[in-house]
């Protein structure tokens, strides 16, 4: 019993890292630009298909092709930003959040149905030579693909952290988050910072999508599911905190798995949403975030 439970929790943590990664892009974009991209899940879906087709048509291993997937999604992000979101940049914050949310909703319809037409409603997944392999430590099983996914998520997290801390561009992004007007007075091109953040967010969605396509499966309508996961994690972790987002993902993954084990698989979805609502109402700064300044 306990062993099974530990096993379940480990699975939950491994999945949770993926949730964290899914939320990372959404959270960064929202934190920097105040664009709430409800279509983030659709970007994950497109990333998944990019990885899938690179595997199927070119034979590229999904982990090897990650940089390419990121690049493709970065371009998609750039196009979406230039075409749509840039038009909301000048709006006051409240209105911007709301309008971008609505644009994202329209985008959801568009991207989902384009994918449906291009690639049909079939579930697809990437099955590699190592897909089924598992290693065992202390009687706990670790599927290789999920462990690799966990590692990739961790690498993304650390790279983003270092990027924001160590590079001039990263510092410019943080300055923009703290006070965009003061940042502009430093000579920082705010428009560029926004664009870059959005593109980076899309690239991160690409990574998440690739991992989903090797760990689970992808289909055109998966977006909403992943957007909700990302939103939940973003709120759990507290805005603007990278480490918090990751911890939030793991918390959600573990809670879902525990629920599935203790109550029933049907309710794993519900528990996350409930947790989300409670945190949103009672601790809007996030479970792990510090109180707002």
């Amino acid at each position: 019993m306990t062993e099974a439970f530990v096993q379940i929790i480990i699975f939950g943590i491994l999945i949770g890292a993926l949730y964290g990664l899914a939320a990372l892009g959404l959270s960064m974009v929202f934190g920097v630009t105040k664009i709430l991209n409800i279509a983030h899940g659709e970007l994950i879906m497109l990333g998944g298909y990019a990885s899938f087709w690179l595997f199927r048509l070119v034979g590229l291993d999904p982990f090897i092709s990650l940089p390419l997937t990121m690049l493709i999604m970065a371009v998609v992000g750039l196009v979406l930003y230039k075409l749509l979101f840039v038009r909301t940049v000048k709006l006051p914050e409240e209105e911007k959040i709301k309008n971008t949310m609505l644009i994202g909703f329209g985008l959801t319809l568009i991207l989902q149905n384009i994918a449906l037409i291009l690639w049909t409603a079939d579930d697809r997944g990437i099955t590699t030579a190592y897909s089924g392999q598992v290693f065992t430590v202390l009687n706990i099983r670790f599927p290789i693909v999920r462990v690799a996914g966990f590692a990739v998520a961790l690498i993304c997290l650390l790279s983003l952290h270092l990027f924001l801390r160590k590079t001039y561009t990263g510092k410019a992004i943080r300055a923009t988050v703290e006070d965009w007007e003061a940042a502009a007075l430093m000579g920082i091109n705010i428009q560029q910072v926004y664009m870059l953040s959005f593109v980076l967010g899309a690239a991160l969605a690409g990574v998440a999508g690739a991992l989903v396509s090797v760990t689970f499966s992808i289909d055109p309508s998966m977006g909403m599911h992943w957007t909700l996961k990302a939103l939940i994690v973003m709120v759990l972790g507290g805005l603007g905190s990278i480490a918090g987002t990751f911890a939030g993902g793991i918390l959600l993954g573990a809670t879902e798995s525990a629920t599935a084990f203790l109550i029933g698989g049907n309710y794993r979805e519900v528990i996350g949403l409930l947790l989300f609502l409670l945190v949103l109402i009672f601790r809007p700064q996030g479970l792990l975030g510090a109180k707002e300044r």
Binding site: T88, G106, I110, N113, L116
Partner: peptide
């Protein structure tokens, strides 16, 4: 099957 795409575009145009 394209009809939802049209709606998505229409909706975005109205919002913008």
């Amino acid at each position: 099957e394209y009809h939802l795409i049209v709606f998505g575009v229409l909706f975005i145009l109205v919002v913008l």
